[in-house]
Design a binder for these strands. Structure first.
Lengths: 130, 130
DNA sequence: TTAATAATTCAACTATTGTTGTATAGTTAA
DNA sequence: TTAACTATACAACAATAGTTGAATTATTAA
């Protein structure tokens, strides 16, 4: 993982609103939520939520699939695992075995599989188009 | 973990400088480094490094012990574990067993034990004095 | 005590981020 | 096509974070 990506991910979680959004979507797992459901659950104005969803999605922490007029968001758990691996590289002064448990952790790996839908949703990659 | 602490931790890692500092100290493990060693390793002006060390320490990610005229910094790995647990609470829509591996991870747990020193260093708790 | 060293604090400036209201793009149904 | 709805993009302002140099505190050694 590149340093810039890591700082972007941390920055995208350095806001109470975005942290609430990400944790909510981690809880929902593979089901995810559409933007309106997130807004009503967290009681946020749509404009403000959109701002934060964009930040999280551009950091790669969320994926988006379009379902008709809805946008469904899901947490990108594998990216979180990569981030943790980045933090623990060459960990503990030459004793990497101390980190083995964490580095091998699976962390909800199935949470990124998209749910089947009648609208045959299309993946939207908003990675780093900025 | 409280939400404010979590966002403070993420914010403290949302800077390239602070991320470099934290990863460097994770690599050093229980040995840690004094401020001057960090400054020379990362080629940072002491004033700027001090600013970032303060942010990391106030977030709880670093611990400081005084050794004579030196300040030795170490990474606080258990806090990182708490943070990961906070992210995975009620994970994956009622299937918490999918996260079991990560939540049980030990992640360099011995990295916080202070190294013995002739100066009998004293713990300095800079947690939330602000 | 005096000088040298390690690290931090303070103040000023620059740069970036967060919030809100309004306007726009795309989707659905009559 | 028109109207209603979902969600995002844009622009303006308010608030916060980052960097630097000079001054300060604390420790060590002569």
């Amino acid at each position: 993982m590149e340093r810039n990506l890591a700082t972007t991910i941390f920055e995208s979680l350095a806001s109470g609103v975005r942290l609430d959004v990400f944790r909510l979507l981690v809880k929902k797992g593979a089901e995810g939520l559409v933007a309106g459901e997130i807004a009503s659950t967290l009681e946020l104005p749509p404009t403000n939520l959109s701002f934060h969803l964009k930040a999280l999605t551009q950091a790669g922490l969320l994926t988006v699939t379009q379902e008709g007029r809805f946008q469904r968001y899901r947490a990108n758990i594998p990216l979180m695992l990569e981030l943790i691996n980045y933090l623990t590289e060459e960990c503990c002064a030459g004793h990497p075995e101390q980190c083995a448990d964490l580095r091998a952790a699976s962390f909800c790996a199935d949470a990124v599989l998209p749910v089947e839908s009648a609208d045959s949703p299309t993946e939207i990659q908003q990675g780093d188009s900025a």
